[in-house]
Each structure stands twice: as structure tokens, then as C-alpha cells.
């Protein structure tokens, strides 16, 4: 006889409902055709394919889905959404899952989140990004000193990487723009903490 795994104890209907509400997508219409997976440029780096994740969401397998590496490796390219025969915005579902995982502090691929934070830190301080700042912060956070060192000679020769943070000029706006961005970030952070989620 085939071995049967009973997953009923793992199912969480509230999780399915939450994903549907947050993403605005009706995941029940997914009939597992696999089109999304077939066109996904990140599939080679996924531990669960995107169509499998859709099935997991349907079944309410919260841990299974939110602990995948895939939701962190997704490129947000929307190829899946475009090709879904049921018009499900699959990329929006992936983004919702990433948000949910982050808010609960489940970060399966920390280096990706570290890169995002390094980027956002330069935006918080300078109002705009500048590449060297992002790189430096990322190297500190990830302790990966040699990231892209092979590119440095070419990038510097061509002045490809902004060396100087281009803060928003003060005289341009009544209230210094960089500080306005800092305040947006701060309000976001405070609200997240108030609402009990990880910013």
C-alpha cells in the first residue's frame, strides 16, 4: 500500500484567507497548470517552485510556504502573473508572502534582506541612494568583504558608482528633502512597532 501522509493538522485556513485578503488574489482558482513555474527566471534557485507555493497557500500550509527560500529569491518580474491562465497576480501573492514572513521575523535568506536594509539606510540618511554607500553597508552587515571586488576597477574607471552621496539640496525645498524622507522612514518604523510587526 502507498504511504499516505495526513496533512490536515498542518492546515491553517486563516492563513489562506489572510493571503487572499492582503494580495487581493483569489488563489482558489489556481488549477496547478504550472505555467508560472515554467516561465520563472528564478526557478533554478527555488527550493519550492512557485506553482507549488500556490498549492501550499490553497491548502493553508503556512510554515511550509513562509519558510521557503523561494519567496526571498523571487525577482518580482511578474512573468508568472502575465502567463497565469486564471489571471492570478502570482507575483503579488509572492510579495504578500514575503511581507508576512518578514513581519514574523522568518528570514530564510538573510543576505537578501540585509541588502534591502543597506539600500534603505542610504535612502533614510540621504533621501536618495548612492551605490558605494549601499555596498559598504551591505559588506558590513553580511561580512562579505569581497562582494563584486572584481568589478571595482572597471566601475571606478567609468565612474559607474556614485561616490558622493547626492543628498537632496537644501535650497530646493522649503524643508530639507532628505530629512523629510528620514521622517517617512521613522513614522513607518514607529507604526510597525506599535502594530506589533517587525519593521
Amino acid at each position: 500500500m502507498n504511504k499516505v501522509t495526513d496533512i490536515s493538522s498542518l492546515r491553517d485556513p486563516a492563513f489562506t484567507a489572510a493571503v487572499q485578503a492582503d494580495s487581493g488574489q483569489d488563489v482558489t482558482t489556481c488549477y496547478q497548470c504550472g505555467n508560472c513555474t515554467a516561465g520563472c527566471p528564478a526557478s533554478f534557485a527555488y527550493d519550492r517552485q512557485v506553482s507549488q507555493i500556490m498549492r501550499g497557500v490553497q491548502l493553508g500550509l503556512k510554515d511550509e510556504v513562509l519558510n521557503t527560500r523561494s519567496i526571498w529569491m523571487c525577482l518580482s518580474c511578474s512573468t508568472c502573473s502575465l502567463r497565469c491562465p486564471n489571471n492570478i497576480d502570482v507575483a503579488a501573492v509572492m510579495e504578500t508572502l514575503r511581507h508576512m514572513a518578514r513581519k514574523e521575523g522568518r528570514v530564510t535568506v538573510p543576505k537578501v534582506e540585509k541588502f534591502w536594509f543597506s539600500f534603505l539606510d542610504t535612502v533614510r540618511v540621504f533621501g536618495r541612494t548612492y551605490e558605494i554607500g549601499t555596498m559598504a553597508l551591505y559588506m558590513l552587515r553580511s561580512l562579505r568583504i569581497f562582494t563584486d571586488l572584481d568589478l571595482a576597477p572597471e566601475a571606478l574607471k567609468k565612474r559607474k558608482l556614485g561616490l558622493i552621496p547626492h543628498a537632496i539640496p537644501r535650497q530646493d525645498v522649503p524643508d530639507d528633502g532628505a530629512r523629510a524622507v528620514g521622517r517617512i522612514m521613522q513614522r513607518y518604523r514607529q507604526r510597525a512597532l506599535r502594530e506589533g510587526v517587525r519593521p
Binding site: F115, W116, R128
Partner: peptide, 11 residues
């Protein structure tokens, strides 16, 4: 005048 980063993918 005084535009800021759109937040790109990370945001």
C-alpha cells in the same frame, strides 16, 4: 525640486 528615491525594489 527636492525629489527623493522611489524606494526601488527594497522598499
Amino acid at each position: 525640486p527636492g525629489w527623493n528615491c522611489c524606494g526601488s525594489t527594497p522598499a
